[in-house]
Amino acid sequence: MSTTAATPASAVSADDSLPKTRIDKLPLLLLPALALLALPLVGSFPTWVTLTVAGLAMGMIIFIIASGLTLIFGLMDILNFGHGVFIALGAFLATAVLGTMADWTASENLLINLLAVLPAMLVAMGVAGAVGYAFERLIIRPVYGQHLKQILITMGGMIVGEELIKVIWGPGQIPLPLPGGFRGAILIGEAAVEKYRLIAVVTGLTVFAAMFWVLARTKLGLLIRAGVQDREMVESLGYRIERLFVGVFVAGSALAGLGGVMWGLYQQNVVPQMGAQVNVLIFIVIIIGGLGSTGGCFIGALLVGLLANYTGFLAPKVALFSNIGLMVLILLWRPQGLYPVAKR
């Protein structure tokens, strides 16, 4: 437990005034601290706004991709190196779906664009979730509890998945242009903010809010959080944890599919190798956040996104190492990540 909240005895004065749980706010403060630190270095305020929004947008997309992985690792204790392939799958499905709706994506009308992008997201989530179901059955189930084998077999699964994508869509790069209404920037004062980044921020916040709500307010979420801590006890209370596992794996894969659509649109092109490329990034993010922690993953993703944009502007060569550097610093401060999850 890293929470340094006061002991119950001193925090409670009377039975009728029950205090709520305290939240460890320190990691939350890292975000504004990083942004404020960057302001004098960047120099120009409008540029800083542009970079900050860009960083937050990138962070939100990374969060969508990584959130599924942190749930899968936290609950099921599975090192799924194949997570990246679901991201690539989502992105390629987006090219396929949006390709059939060229009229709607070419339109400048944001509403019509959304009517094209939303089905693409739903298809990506649905197919990635279904493939995730098969992946869990065939590849993960035989290696529960064996980390080394998990790494080897999920890596293998990713290579096979990547090759299957090449079989279906070919080995080359496929452009994934932003729909007409998503393009361009809006000016806030003097700062130019790309529209798609705002869309990414809204989508990311929606996913985070939905996940947070499910985990904090529903019994399903309680079960997932309890399962992260003590699987055996959850079973002893009469809940079938393997069903929960499958559900979380499917949901995690579907989120990866959604993240793939967002990431593909962000990069504006997709390659079969994108899964492997993003894999390293998302593992860095969930390690920074504390393996299994959703809130930690969210903050970790935003930190990575912000830092990548600031350093990309200030010192492009440093940007290549910024993620690793951030992870090293965070782990020196909190070796278990920002929000360590209590384990058995």
Binding site: M1, T21, L222, L223, R225, A226, Q229, D230, A342
Partner: peptide, 12 residues
Amino acid sequence: FSDLTVRENMLL
């Protein structure tokens, strides 16, 4: 379940 509240433990 140490991360859950007493109430949440009971609810589960």
